[in-house]
Amino acid sequence: MTMKWRGWVLATGALAISALAQAAPPSPAMLSNACAGCHGTNGGSYGPTMPSLANQSKEAIEVAMKKFKSGERSGSIMGRLAKGYSDAEITAMAEFFSKQKLHPTTQTLDKAKIAKGASLQEANCGRCHIEDGKEGKDDTPAMASQWLPYMQMQMADYLSGKRKMPEKMKEKVDPMSKEDLDALLHFYASVK
């Protein structure tokens, strides 16, 4: 026993030398992993009201984060968090998540609505939400396999004016019925 305790005392004296070494600035993974507590490991979300970020378009994440940061887009905590990052850090995180594999979600969806959405999507949304929503043109977000409750909340914000729709989207959305819009969201949620 005595031996052991002497050992402990010695160890206490020997401070970690590595602690003094220089460290590299936060890497894309270091920055992005901190988000995963809410958005899932590598950005694959299991929480129906929090979007998956995995495989999201880089530009879409950048634009979203910058709008959260400026306050143009409201989000309960995202504004407060986005203010903690420089534009370069935002780009690094956006790039990290855009490189992750698509996260297929398992959700209970209405088959009839999926079919209706499928028939509407190409003509109405397909110019920007390309490849069945697996990709987005420029900063258009990918929506394939995204959580339906999350998308429904976003759509409600668009319709109430809380979130501003891009002009082209507004032109298409304005004449559509709520049922059609919901069918479209069901369709995108179903894409794997």
Partner: peptide, 20 residues
């Protein structure tokens, strides 16, 4: 991240953390 770096004799990375 840093335990892996130290075990492999690589440079450590500075912290960036979140609480919600």
């Amino acid at each position: 991240t840093n335990v892996v770096a130290l075990l492999n004799g690589k440079e450590t990375t500075e912290l960036s953390g979140i609480n919600t």
